[in-house]
Amino acid sequence: MNSALSRRLAFAGLFIAVTVAMLIPSEGDVRVAPETRQLYEWIDSIPPGSQVIVSFDHEASALPEIRPLALALLRHCFERDLVPIGVSLLAEGTGIGFALMDQTADEYDKTYGEDYAFLGFKPQFIAAILSMGESIPATYPEDYLGTPIDSLPAMVGVTTYDDVVGVLSIADGSMTTHWVEYGEARFGVPIAGAVTAAMITSYDPYLASGQMVALMGGLRGAAEYEQLIGIGGGGSRGLLAQSVSHLYVLAMIIIGNLLWWRARRRKGKESV
């Protein structure tokens, strides 16, 4: 088959498959992976009223995958009456993180400054993580909205990582690694991660060694978490489309290999 034509057919096929899958309502239970359950149980075990840092370490490009993960986790935090303190190690995560916290807080009638806070972005992620370990008020004298953080009830008693139960890093790249390497290794703060599916195996060694307390990933992780908290969302809705695209890629691999073997056999016969 002509190379350009085969590429166009592959593109068109994927577009049709994903579009159709998105139109079909996705329902039914998903098998919850052990690591997703571990994260759920970790958050569930935190006493109400405890502060937890939620770090939005991602860019806008990963939003379709990150958004369901973040919403499911924030919903669980607010449901458990935890006090999420939002930060961002990437500039683009700042606006997104604030909007997601705001949206979820509204669902649970939480008040900004009392039940949650958003400190915003600090450039140079390694410096920011290390600096927060020394002093959070010195690193963030004001929150994202310009309010001095001493005047926020949500920040009362929060000086270093010792005063929070842990860090929940929502990331689309290697940013969670820096939380582990500097936050956990230097200051001993527990780190949990919610990452894109492409990144999840990068964190397996940290989870296995106990340097991370929990980890979940991808749209599937979001769907599993939504099932655990009993609130549907983007994860469950997008799972069918993702599954269809996985199967489509598999079909492409099989077709590609069959065509290649056939071409090779023909070539072999011709040379004989």
Binding site: L14, F15, V18, G256
Partner: peptide, 25 residues
Amino acid sequence: QAPMQATVFALLAFFVASAALRGFR
């Protein structure tokens, strides 16, 4: 900005499908 970046990122799925058909042997 967010939709543009998400669009560019989503194009990866098409490249993966094309690579699966033509390169993964």
